[in-house]
Design a protein around this nucleic acid. Structure first.
Lengths: 191, 191
DNA sequence: CTCCCAACCGAACGATCGTTAGTCTCGGAT
DNA sequence: ATCCGAGACTAACGATCGTTCGGTTGGGAG
């Protein structure tokens, strides 16, 4: 992919995140490149291509982040690593993460279905962590893994609305992990 | 407000939630009423009016929900009540909640500012619960109330994406409350 | 030096956008 | 019986939408 084409994708990610997919015109995209809007079509076949590309980028980034979570180690540590990895992607690729989280629904047809499948797979990988934690005894035995995963995923899925580039995401993820694991009320391991 | 005008607002809420504000045309709105698009302007001055109205409806619904949380009682009970109240609004007015959470950003000018101020106030009211819980000793003394509120608010702000009308929101809110308060790892009050 | 091709221009396409204007209908109040 | 006004109609407005197309440009490969 040419350098110019990459520039266009970056501009699309930024504008789609800022103004929404339907709120961004091809004229907006062209202006970001300093070009006439007709010239965009030397690089793409349609505006929808850009949405698809950015959404897929997000999908890959989040899955790659989960890939970095070690297979071994305590579940507690792996949950911490997963939250860290997710928040890191959000902070470092805020535009892409925003499109992945909010604008993907303007995908159409088969692309939409493929995206949704990847998203579901991501959530399932996340949930498996909590299920394993319960089954192995690292988490409480009466844990509802679906609810637990929902709570954790909600927290990180909403992060694109308040995270800023340069945030200390590892520390933030650790604070979330501590709250999720030990709660707000008391100490799990009393002094 | 006439019955017809109310119908229009309901259709707007539904369509804005389903297709997005910019993805919904006045022709879509007119079709939902079984009317020509020009006829809409017997009821409104602009499409933006509808967005403003639905967003304000959401703002009022969520604030009213928080108003129902008792002033007295343990903070733990009040947090449970706040989560219940919020999730109830989401489930019972899913369209309005979706616009409140996702589409509000297409508001412009002074309306946008007023909305953001109300939204901030809502979050601040939420956070105050956790701060008070820590100060009064109901929650752990080292609690970071900002992070705690962020976690809880994220969970409920994301709810519009997966909650369906008819969900047992009270039970769900209670499960969230239990997880947030006592954590996923152990029991706060060991047997 | 010539050729090529990626990149861009300029102009236009038909479609759709939100909105306006003038007219008509009709049920209820005077 | 008359009037009124809410609500809907049709038609059209200028603007903007995403996209197409033939022509121009300029720098690197042969």
């Amino acid at each position: 992919m040419s350098a110019r084409r990459t520039e266009l994708t970056r501009a699309a990610a930024r504008l789609f995140a800022e103004k929404g997919y339907h709120g961004t015109s091809t004229a907006d995209l062209a202006e970001a490149l300093g070009v006439q809007k007709g010239s965009l079509y030397a690089h793409i076949e349609s505006k929808a291509d850009l949405l698809w590309e950015v959404a897929r980028e997000g999908s890959e980034a989040f899955h790659a982040a989960l890939d970095s979570v070690p297979e071994e180690g305590s579940v507690v540590e792996r949950i911490r690593a997963a939250l860290r990895a997710h928040l890191r992607v959000v902070a470092e690729q805020l535009d892409v993460a925003t499109v992945f989280t909010r604008e993907w629904r303007y995908l159409e047809g088969e692309r939409r279905e493929r995206f949704v499948a990847e998203r579901r797979r991501y959530e399932e990988r996340f949930r498996a962590l909590f299920r394993e934690g319960r089954d192995r005894g690292d988490l409480r035995s009466d844990l509802d893994d679906a609810t637990a995963a929902l709570l954790a995923l909600s927290a990180v899925n909403w992060a694109y609305t308040w995270l800023r580039a340069g945030s200390q995401t590892d520390e933030l993820a650790d604070r979330f992990t501590a709250l999720l694991l030990d709660g707000m009320r008391g100490y799990a391991t009393p002094p």
